[in-house]
Design a protein around this nucleic acid. Sequence first.
DNA 1: GTGGCATTGTTATCTTATAACACTCACGAC
DNA 2: GTCGTGAGTGTTATAAGATAACAATGCCAC
Lengths: 161, 161
Amino acid sequence: MHGATHHLTALERAEALCQTRGVQLTPLRRDVLRLVLEAEAPIGAYALLDQLKASRPKAAPPTVYRALDFLLEQGLIHRLERLNAFMGCTEALEGHDHDHDHAHDHPHQFLICRGCGATREISDHAVEAAIAAAAARGGFSAPRATVEIEGLCAKCGAAKP
Amino acid sequence: MHGATHHLTALERAEALCQTRGVQLTPLRRDVLRLVLEAEAPIGAYALLDQLKASRPKAAPPTVYRALDFLLEQGLIHRLERLNAFMGCTEALEGHDHDHDHAHDHPHQFLICRGCGATREISDHAVEAAIAAAAARGGFSAPRATVEIEGLCAKCGAAKP
DNA sequence: GTGGCATTGTTATCTTATAACACTCACGAC
DNA sequence: GTCGTGAGTGTTATAAGATAACAATGCCAC
């Protein structure tokens, strides 16, 4: 029940979201988004570039970085700072039926497995609240937090504990 | 009550910590640590290299990266993933009288001001607990979290709200 | 004094990211 | 119609961050 169907759905959601916002999900941007979604783990810009070159021999670093910038601005993908890599935004693309304008900048955290590299996006309100409180206590306003939690996922933890 | 005295104290603490552990805070490593501590905000490896060259013309990228690796291993500095930059570890160097072995890997978070760049390390137990709970709920074990909170500090928030 | 180990020096290279400028194409103003 | 404007993309070059690989030094144990 995953695989191609899953990705088509996500791409269709992305398309709809962009139409609503009056921005263009061009073929290039769509291709980059598709490649990000097809990757099993967060993928780096140059790995993406290599794959993109299969269908677009003319692609160069700015090609992929500009597409990634667009997708980031639209909240369709996230950047993982620890990995210098990108992954699809679960919230925006797997439709938990939130307000779509919210997808631009929603609180989120990542669970990164140091065994297999698989990464999940979560949206934990307790974490978010604790961070907001800590920021306020420190006199900080308008906080936006990068939260990347590295550990062993259930599968890898069972394999080699 | 800050300034030179503050930094000397921190360097002395670092020295003592390394002696206890049987590792060497060599002159080079000490210089790099001093430069990191003297910076007003997190500082990048190449900015550090430029400054280091004033006293050590022979310095090259590996010079500074190896020193930084050592300081990171000893928990004397932290790396800020969003900034590709380094800052001193408040916990290890400003002595809140914890168990010193704990300084190797203590839970911590950062408050980064997007106005002035000033960054503070905090150690918020509620944030840590919420993250541990979220990781456990996701089936993740042995979590270590990168938490970098960007916002406006009290000074910058007042200046341009 | 020599063998091993930690540290530093040295050169080259790799990865990640952006600057700067040219070209195309769609669209509206006139 | 054609002229300009702006978004998107192509193209070349370079900046910024990080590491690989090997050589040289210095110190201590034996």
